[in-house]
């Protein structure tokens, strides 16, 4: 199908974009990478009145590090993170483990990390990582700038704390300490399918004991999930396959709330979550400098 009619504007500055977005009486959407938005418009599941194309705004493609955080601008494309050196340290490794799971190269050439956070697909890789690391989403809007931590950001499938008229300008993710081990594994039916389950993990281990654990789950509930119960089960315990299997079980039973899908009922999905969390933790532990 073809998109329904809409108006289009391509502002050159953030204030111009905000002015366009202020038209809250209508369905106004931000076009960044567009790889989800245009798809939904093509299927006419979305019929916006106005598209605000932010691709010509200078500076939004900035990727910078300061203060132990990396700041990813709204126009930084997925493909940037294919390389483990785009971002320093274990975070760069984690992002590069996740990036190849996002669609395929031509989609990654246009789609953006911040756009994924705005879109908030329950199966999104970036959203799961943002949840795990409690990333900070930065917005500008009619009432000025504000920041929202990921724990308050995801409200449901495709629902976020974004207010009308607001523009996501960047996301800040904590650089993980040297020695943190990371893992990212997806379970999918084919290379092109959405993940049935995706797991992101970061583990800090000292003397064989977990000091800190971060687990994010993709497509394990109606929104991205940080598996806090599983994290708690890990901290202070001795690493090993028994622990990881137990943490997987906890994540599946307490943190996740999977919905039935074709070819994956709730029973199977819970089982797969437990297995995948265990495996991702093992991957992370292998990378952790102890």
């Amino acid at each position: 199908m073809k998109p329904a009619r809409f108006e289009y504007t391509a502002p050159r500055t953030v204030p111009e974009a905000l002015a366009a977005l202020a038209d809250t009486g209508r369905d106004v959407r931000v076009l960044a990478g567009g790889q989800s938005l245009l798809l939904e418009m093509r299927l006419q599941r979305l019929r916006p009145d106005l598209l605000v194309d932010i691709n010509r705004i200078a500076g939004l493609d900035r990727l910078g590090v300061d203060d132990g955080m990396v700041e990813v601008g709204a126009l930084v494309r997925h493909e940037v993170f294919d390389s483990p050196w785009a971002v320093p340290g274990p975070l760069g490794t984690l992002l590069s483990l996740a990036a190849p799971n996002i669609a395929h190269p031509p989609i990654r050439a246009l789609g953006t990390m911040v756009g994924s956070l705005a879109w908030a697909h329950p199966a999104s890789e970036w959203c799961a990582i943002a949840a795990a690391l409690d990333a900070v989403i930065r917005l500008r809007g009619p009432e000025g700038a504000r920041e929202v931590p990921a724990r308050d950001w995801f409200r449901g499938p495709f629902e976020t704390a974004r207010r009308p008229g607001e523009l996501l300008t960047s996301v800040r993710l904590p650089l993980l300490g040297e020695g943190t081990g990371v893992g990212f594994i997806e379970h999918r039916r084919t290379h092109f399918s959405f993940a049935q389950v995706g797991v992101a993990a970061a583990l800090t281990v000292r003397d064989g004991v977990v000091v800190e654990a971060r687990i994010g789950l993709a497509n394990c509930a109606d929104r991205p999930v940080r598996a806090r119960a599983a994290e708690q089960a890990l901290v202070g315990a001795e690493i090993g396959s028994t622990l990881f299997a137990r943490a997987g079980r906890v994540a599946a039973d307490q943190d996740a709330a999977p919905l039935a899908e074709p070819y994956a009922d709730v029973e199977y999905r819970r089982h797969a979550i437990a297995v995948l969390v265990g495996r991702t933790l093992r991957q992370a532990a292998e990378g952790a400098r102890q």
Partner: peptide, 13 residues
């Protein structure tokens, strides 16, 4: 979701 749901083999398979 079209060909994201009807899964024909890709080169990866």
């Amino acid at each position: 979701n079209g060909l994201l749901d009807y899964l024909v083999p890709t080169a990866a398979e």
